[in-house]
Design a protein around this nucleic acid. Structure first.
Lengths: 203, 203
DNA sequence: GTTGCGCTTAACCAACCAGTCAACTAAACT
DNA sequence: AGTTTAGTTGACTGGTTGGTTAAGCGCAAC
């Protein structure tokens, strides 16, 4: 297991940042290199192409977020609390980026996935893969919630997809309206979907 | 009220088609001109810029779809039936494009809006405006459903946003997974959100 | 101390980009 | 017939694109 080089990591982080805040199509390899303070040649030494960089940046970003997701969705936490904490996290994440960049930037995986999935199969597959990974967290939490009787029986995978799509759709709409207030009804919608009441109202 | 010229309309249709199937960033003015069989000069005679064309293409596409939406959401139709018909229409629309182009292309307003809303304020505002128009149909149907008692009381505007975001999120996810099967749970999720049962199960 | 290797440097490329423009056409108005 | 107007044409610009390449650097192994 060789460690990723500094240059490579700097490119991955810079690329995700730049593309997240703008779009894949509007960010050039030169832009990324300039911001990362890396030469073009080094870029193409580290990555075969711009698309390959995007795929690697996806994976890198996922790996950075994963410990937090593992914690949020830990089976040590009551299943509905997991869902609630995930909602809070998703909103917090958007607001943090909003304050840093001044604009609502949405979910990078969805935005870039949606931009490129009809054009670049490699990127589409990666976006799909990451979506599936996230849905696993959700379906596991939902399965546990059903098992303990806190939500009605139903297909956990299907419910997870409904929740996932709702969250991604809401975040996208918040981006399009560039309005953080829209995120306020994220949790409400999620609990509508799983037909349970937020924990605060339960306890 | 002057009629829009043939050239202008051909450019509007071609541009929407091309950008819908690919992305704004990957489609050049030359691409649009070639496909529409129009010269570059005529393009810039008809539109100030590529971005202005995109905005006009949005409006044009909306106007083409509007009669159908007016029919679907007519107050002559029972409110839950309106929702159900809208779900069916949204799915049918995606499948039609899927069969014509061979790929799931998602919602053009959302895809393009999401791609460009951090970069081009003009396009962002138009995408927002069209989203608001569509949510009006939904909130009106939901308000009527509450009035007739077929769904529980709640803020119609907020519920409409939840439904809207869910639908857009699901369609985006179907695009990212390039899998029409995902659309199958569209209706179920919508009726989860409004906490009503599909009409078939009611009657 | 020199050889080999991982990595960086900066110049370079052809294709392409959005946008411009002066010349042109064809029909409508006077 | 002459002039205005609305629209068309395609060559052109200057800058940018993703990607390439040959030369060079620093350092560890021998």
């Amino acid at each position: 297991m060789r460690r990723e080089s500094d240059t490579r990591i700097k490119l991955l982080q810079t690329a995700l940042e730049l593309i997240w805040e703008n779009s894949y199509g509007s960010v050039s390899v030169d832009d990324i290199c300039n911001r990362a303070d890396v030469n073009k040649g080094s870029f193409y030494y580290a990555f075969k192409s711009k698309a390959e960089l995007a795929v690697a940046a996806f994976e890198h970003h996922w790996n950075e977020k994963r410990p937090l997701l593992d914690e949020i969705f830990s089976s040590q936490v009551p299943p509905l609390t997991r869902l609630e904490n995930y909602c809070d996290y998703a909103v917090r994440d958007q607001l943090a980026k909003y304050e840093k960049f001044g604009k609502l930037c949405g979910c990078p995986f969805s935005s870039i996935g949606s931009e490129l999935s009809t054009q670049d199969e490699q990127i589409r597959r990666k976006a799909q893969e990451l979506a599936e990974r996230k849905m696993k967290y959700l379906s596991s939490a939902i399965r546990d919630a059903i098992a303990e009787g806190s939500i009605d029986a139903g297909d956990p995978a299907e419910l997870a997809r409904e929740v996932f799509c709702y969250v991604k759709g809401l975040i996208m709409e918040a981006k399009i309206e560039n309005n953080p207030d829209i995120l306020k009804c994220l949790k409400k919608g999620v609990f509508h979907l799983v037909a349970a009441r937020p924990i605060a109202a339960l306890s």
